[in-house]
């Protein structure tokens, strides 16, 4: 039984690796400030002309009592204007709690939502961070979808965001 399960799991893992994915690695810098709050971070995809938006993830203070954490969502002002103000938070599969300083990974399977519905074309991965009593920073990584070959693209922030890498696996 155990053997069977292991075999099934390895098939699943191999299958998903073949199916392709996009993974984002994000470094939240440790800041030496008197009052530190974890940053709100929004991740989304924009078509090259900026017309089509695909939300990937929103990190905000989901646990704040009475949903008061939504008060600072508008500080990610580009995301707020493009798509945030049209959404209701929290949203399943999109919103999750803020993360501490360090490196974090997000992985999106090509065959699953939201990438499965993404038409072929040129896109920007946009990452916007805003910190209470702190600053705001926005980074863009241009890429082509679907990827033809494995690629790792990156960008580096200089205040609220550290290194960001987008790893594409066909």
């Amino acid at each position: 039984m155990r053997l069977l399960l292991t075999a099934a799991m390895s098939t699943l893992a191999a299958g998903s690796a073949l199916a392709g994915e996009a993974s984002i690695s994000i470094d939240i810098p440790r800041l030496n400030v008197a009052e530190y709050h974890r940053p709100y971070v929004a991740f989304w995809l924009e078509s090259e002309d900026g017309g089509k938006i695909t939300n990937l993830a929103v990190w905000y203070d989901v646990k704040h009592k009475d949903g008061e954490g939504t008060k600072w969502l508008k500080d990610m002002r580009t995301w707020w204007r493009r798509t945030g103000r049209e959404l209701t938070m929290p949203t399943d599969g999109l919103s999750s709690p803020t993360r501490p300083p360090g490196t974090h990974e997000l992985t999106f399977k090509s065959a699953a939502a939201p990438l499965a519905a993404l038409p072929a074309g040129n896109y920007n991965l946009v990452v916007e961070a805003a910190r209470e009593v702190g600053g705001r920073e926005l980074l863009r990584i241009p890429f082509q979808w679907p990827p033809k070959a494995p690629a790792t693209l990156d960008a580096k922030g200089d205040s609220e965001l550290g290194a960001i890498a987008l790893k594409l696996t066909p």
Partner: peptide, 8 residues
């Protein structure tokens, strides 16, 4: 002029 959240 631009706000998010509730009980505003």
């Amino acid at each position: 002029t631009v706000l998010s959240g509730k009980d505003l």
